[in-house]
């Protein structure tokens, strides 16, 4: 636990004591600001829906979600492995899981900080006399943070599988993008299959099962129909916590496996 904290501190410091972290932050904040700039007039100055839109409503949010975690994961895993500092970490008296969890927490905190800008906008609105619906904003923010955790863990897993930073980033990016796109595209594909299979027969049953399992894995859907509506749903909390746990577990195993394969 202590080791996790030490690693966490070091990773955060590594992000904020280099210009890179601030640059990423600036870019993300600019993207968020751009979203607000575009969406506020569109909703006629509707504070609540604009703020919640900035968290999960637009393509920009999901683009950040797909791009940032792989970048962070690449920096934290593949780059470290290439520069040899991973050897340093793995021979220091901390467990592998502490290393992985510390990095995961640091990256998630960084993303949480980026999303925290939305409550900050809310505060600005409040100061200007148009207070937002804080409960809803908080729920959406929490959802965004948990979703970031999900993607960070996925990115870490992908980035751990290779030494090459660029390949790691690409793999992580592909994994995150796939996690988002496969359910929706798969669902559409299945919808078009509907025309060819009956509702009662085996094919129809198969399509139904596939559809429902795809739906169960659809992050966008999970995010949209709970967090973004301003609801804390225990099932969603479980979803957004259990998958990262699985990915982190797999990452630790993968890290151990690397030792065998190296």
């Amino acid at each position: 636990m202590r080791g996790t904290l030490v690693i966490y501190r070091r990773e955060l410091a590594g992000l904020f004591l280099t210009p890179l972290g601030w640059l990423l932050l600036a870019l993300a904040l600019f993207a968020n600001g751009l979203f607000l700039y575009l969406v506020l007039p569109y909703t006629g100055g509707d504070v609540g829906s604009s703020l919640r839109g900035a968290l999960g409503g637009g393509t920009l949010f999901w683009a950040l979600m797909v791009f940032l975690p792989p970048l962070l994961a690449m920096r934290m895993m593949a780059e470290e492995s290439r520069s040899g500092t991973l050897e340093y970490l793995l021979t220091a008296p901390v467990s592998d899981s502490a290393v992985v969890v510390g990095k995961f927490l640091a990256a998630t905190t960084f993303l949480a900080l980026i999303w925290s800008v939305v409550p900050l906008y809310g505060l600005l609105f409040q100061l200007q006399g148009s207070p937002p619906d804080w409960g809803a904003v908080f729920a959406t923010w929490l959802g965004a943070v948990l979703t970031s955790g999900l993607f960070v863990s996925l990115g870490l897993l992908a980035a751990t599988s290779t030494n090459t930073p660029l390949l790691a980033a690409f793999l992580a990016f592909a994994a995150c993008l796939g996690w988002i796109l496969v359910p929706s595209f798969g669902g559409q594909l299945l919808n078009s299959l509907d025309a060819f299979v009956g509702t009662g027969d085996l094919g129809g049953l198969l399509v139904q099962t596939l559809r429902s399992s795809l739906q169960a894995m659809d992050v966008l859907r999970h995010f949209h129909f709970s967090w973004r509506m301003g609801v804390i749903d225990t099932a969603e909390v479980v979803f957004f916590c259990s998958w990262p746990c699985l990915f982190l577990f797999a990452t630790v195993r993968m890290l151990e496996g690397r030792r065998w394969r190296v």
Binding site: R10, L17, S83, T85, L86, E87
Partner: peptide, 8 residues
């Protein structure tokens, strides 16, 4: 390789 964090 003397792995040290370069940014520290």
């Amino acid at each position: 390789s003397v792995p040290l964090y370069r940014d520290m």
